[in-house]
Design a protein around this nucleic acid. Sequence first.
DNA 1: AATGAATGAGGTTTCATTCAT
DNA 2: TATGAATGAAACCTCATTCAT
Lengths: 207, 207, 207, 207
Amino acid sequence: MSTAEKTADRSASKKARTRQRLVDAARTVFNADGFYDSKLSDIPPEAGLSTGTFYNYFTSKEEIFQAVMVDVLAELQEIRTERNIATRRRPVDSIREANRTYLQGYRRNARLMADCNALARMNPAIREIKDQIDSVFETRLATAIRRWQQQGIAINDVDPLYAANALAYMVDRFANEFYVFGKPYEQEQAIDTLTKLWARALGVPTD
Amino acid sequence: MSTAEKTADRSASKKARTRQRLVDAARTVFNADGFYDSKLSDIPPEAGLSTGTFYNYFTSKEEIFQAVMVDVLAELQEIRTERNIATRRRPVDSIREANRTYLQGYRRNARLMADCNALARMNPAIREIKDQIDSVFETRLATAIRRWQQQGIAINDVDPLYAANALAYMVDRFANEFYVFGKPYEQEQAIDTLTKLWARALGVPTD
Amino acid sequence: MSTAEKTADRSASKKARTRQRLVDAARTVFNADGFYDSKLSDIPPEAGLSTGTFYNYFTSKEEIFQAVMVDVLAELQEIRTERNIATRRRPVDSIREANRTYLQGYRRNARLMADCNALARMNPAIREIKDQIDSVFETRLATAIRRWQQQGIAINDVDPLYAANALAYMVDRFANEFYVFGKPYEQEQAIDTLTKLWARALGVPTD
Amino acid sequence: MSTAEKTADRSASKKARTRQRLVDAARTVFNADGFYDSKLSDIPPEAGLSTGTFYNYFTSKEEIFQAVMVDVLAELQEIRTERNIATRRRPVDSIREANRTYLQGYRRNARLMADCNALARMNPAIREIKDQIDSVFETRLATAIRRWQQQGIAINDVDPLYAANALAYMVDRFANEFYVFGKPYEQEQAIDTLTKLWARALGVPTD
DNA sequence: AATGAATGAGGTTTCATTCAT
DNA sequence: TATGAATGAAACCTCATTCAT
């Protein structure tokens, strides 16, 4: 590798690091104040940078929100890869594990998730991320339901995708009320109830 | 009735009518553009009034949003009164009816409902309305579940309130994806799937 | 007097009374909040009337201020007529009496007097009233000085008008600091000091 | 000095210069149109800047008025330091000099001084500056009077502070009528009259 | 690449005044 | 004459974005 190449490399990685600092700062700010109530000018200082620098990396407030959500998506995907819903022995354990994972993941990003929903309406790029985040759970879950149906474990008078989505929505919205609005739920009881409802809804044995 | 009284009366009713025109206009504007992407100054023209008039009745965009949601709440309450969930013969029919009603009601106010959730985070007054809207469904549903549990129709190893809320969330969020984001669902199939999932989740007979 | 005439009369006097109610209300409002910080719309309610009525009698906020100051002027003139500065036996007593009168008169109208000065700059009609108010004291005082000069009681190396005005200003400004700004003076000591300074400035015997 | 420090330095001094440009522009505008008849949005253009810039430095019209008066105060204090009232040989010469100085200083800032009095009523911060401006003259003058009283030059049957203030008020108000309202006085005669009245009022020899 | 002062479009808000009843 | 809701010009203020250094 030539010196020039090394310099280019170092510079590229420096760029990447500065960019990441901005994204992390934005995540902090958006999670604290919400997208609409935060000022763009609060982000660069949070990263120890200046306003002008922001525009060397992003062209708008929405664009960096998008970048934040890409990070969130990546994290959620990583978690899903680690604990695959369909590899557990008993379906109900898979479901319980999935619910626990989702609630914990949501908690970290509560505000972001809520704002993402709001912004997805207006901004196609963010919409796409939201769809990907949704599908992290939904497609895998639909696949699992389909398999359980074939194995005769789950009822098969419902469309797997409708069912998967509906049940995923239940958990998502529960998490929203719990962590964003602070509704007075208790986490273990929530996971237990959600798991029972979910399993029974699909006809999966619960004991 | 004295002349002065008549005048006061006429004036009071005129005020009420103008206020209602503004609220209706706001509802139109908010439903079309969303709360954040609409400007306050779009509302008075929509009502055939001038900017200044707005401030004779409301002090901010959030305040009139709140008034709009009060109307929405009233409408939803009226619908619930008409078709009481627990008076139907078969529980599963009550559930189906409730789901149908909710989806149809949501459709009319899709954008508003979504924005209400977003705004409830920041604004206590709106939060209160959201809670009331939520409870229109949740408390009645929890009551029904409790009754079914007592009658041995529904499983009783879950807390009625947790279950009621979780299932209500499922429908609410489904409606949101369906009507706000335009996910390609089909209404009858949605109602059918939601009803089946819901009934089975509670152990209520479905046929 | 015909019935028609009587009716016209009664109506005219009713108009006058309504007008006076507005002027009195304006005086109250202006004295409480100051001209610039008061709203025109606070005046009619203070008089038990409505906004619209205001414009049957006056064409603007400044116009009614002017009317208020005309009243103030009339009151000050009345006081001056009662206690004529030059008719007292000893000049110093006249001066003391004048100072006492002025301070007491100012006190009642402190805010108005201050605002009148500010408004006089922009509004010729108000300027005229201010000049008349000033001259209530100044011309009489100048006349007195001139007489005292002729009688050899007062020094005559100063122009009577300059001297009269300067000394009137001293008292006026003192009253302003005392009553408008609440400077911690004591009224009797103020009158005594102002009288001594004034008399000695003119060479008038003080004992 | 590091590059960063130099940059910070340059930026700080640029900020200071821009701020001063705004203050100077505000002084021009307020002196021309008066505080109440000027609009905030006239100030930045007068400084060759834009509306938004104003709000990087000040939060309101009153706040920048205050900054203007701080400048005025500084100038008046500087003048007083140069020509100390009590160091002249003959008291009457000190008085004449003080009066001349005051009238000339007032002339430059006539409108501002008048507005300052009006605003001091409503705004505590401006009130404080007005008090400081007043005291520039009053305390020094009171000290001088006290000294003259001790030396037997001035009468001592009046409180030095009352006398100092009253006489300062006389000059201040004269200047106000002269320069703000354009009363047809002649400057030299004004100074002469004020000086004679002042000196005689205190019993200070005039020839 | 980093800086942060400057920008100004885009909104909000006030309140003296009008006018239909 | 009295009413008071309606008006809209005229201000105010914010903050995402630009740009000279």
